[in-house]
Design a binder for these strands. Sequence first.
DNA 1: TAGATTGTTAATCGATTAACAATC
DNA 2: TAGATTGTTAATCGATTAACAATC
Lengths: 215, 215
Amino acid sequence: MSIKLGKVPSIRRMPEYLGILNNLKKRDINDISTSYFAEKMGIKQINVKKDLDLLNVTGRTGVGYRVKDLIHGIEDFLGWNNTSNAVLLGAGNLGSALLGYNGFKKKGLNIVAAFDLKVESEKEIHGIKVMNISNFKDIVKRMHINIAVLTVPGEVAQKVADLLVDCGITGIWNFTDIKLDVPGDVLVQDENLASGLAELSVKIKMKFEQKYSEK
Amino acid sequence: MSIKLGKVPSIRRMPEYLGILNNLKKRDINDISTSYFAEKMGIKQINVKKDLDLLNVTGRTGVGYRVKDLIHGIEDFLGWNNTSNAVLLGAGNLGSALLGYNGFKKKGLNIVAAFDLKVESEKEIHGIKVMNISNFKDIVKRMHINIAVLTVPGEVAQKVADLLVDCGITGIWNFTDIKLDVPGDVLVQDENLASGLAELSVKIKMKFEQKYSEK
DNA sequence: TAGATTGTTAATCGATTAACAATC
DNA sequence: TAGATTGTTAATCGATTAACAATC
């Protein structure tokens, strides 16, 4: 599906604003200006301004924005005010790590169950039930699941994705490095660790080369 | 440090090309065209063309590129042909998961040791030694460490980053959601899971709204 | 020769940045 | 009134896309 998103970089910055805002709230600070964010985040003030313009929030000229308004504005914008039920597929290293991450609920993601090909009898990891994948269809039918977090080994990723699609799941957060082949109405968000490492690698390489060309 | 990178999106796509290429190599396919990548990756052929133009590799008009040349070209471009030694800080859920990921070495990253605040006596996770962080300075001094993978809890992230800087480490792959405050010559690559989830959340929200406006 | 594909230059699009007016 | 900051429009920059020539 080709949804016209626009502003992807702005969207990706929103959680960082939210983190800063929640911190301010904790410290009972009620008003904040774009230049504060800019300084904290190491970006330009005008960039922050443009990002916040996407929200349905008005600031007060000469004063700034209300922290409370921005928090609501961003949660609204991201849809993090009403929680989505999610399942996790593949309770290996990475999957287990994600099950142990408590921050998801605050981010509108409620992992209700996990499934694995290898798990025989039901068990729990970090308080979340892990079942054999054969139970998947039943559970999904009973609950309203919006998102599947895919952390299975690459070799079975497509097969599991097919099952997800078959069960009517239309949002997949894909942590495998396989490019999934899914129908057009299924959303896939690829999370690729290697991209970040590639970026860092090139930066290091450039710094190194720069160092030696400076002599 | 403000290194002029240019082409960040292209750099981030390189690992995916590499994955496809290694697959082709395994299948003994020697030549490949840009349109093959485009189809596999769901992007435009001309986009692939431009990406490969960054490499020091020439194709043959009417035929395509040699798989072997592209693999070498990308590894060279990313600096993944000579391995960097790395340490990991914070052997919690995510840290342990990363220690268990075998793919890093192929990506030029060799995690030689891990450190944790809570670990008392030396132990091993996935075959990698985990020590108390008090041993950090000694170990780093003895080995040539280029990169620190930071997976500690947010509360101690800045403190640990200070230690890293103090020990002369100039490349940090930051998995915490804290914006680290480091000297200008230290490279920080932020890996922010929440950004991906934000993107997916907005897409899902838009799909939902679209669905109901279509009636 | 016809087809496929690289190589290269130009056009378009979108994100960032700049400039300045409006207003608390 | 002066200072700070939002609001808004225009300029710039970089990435993607288009077009076509060159060549195997």
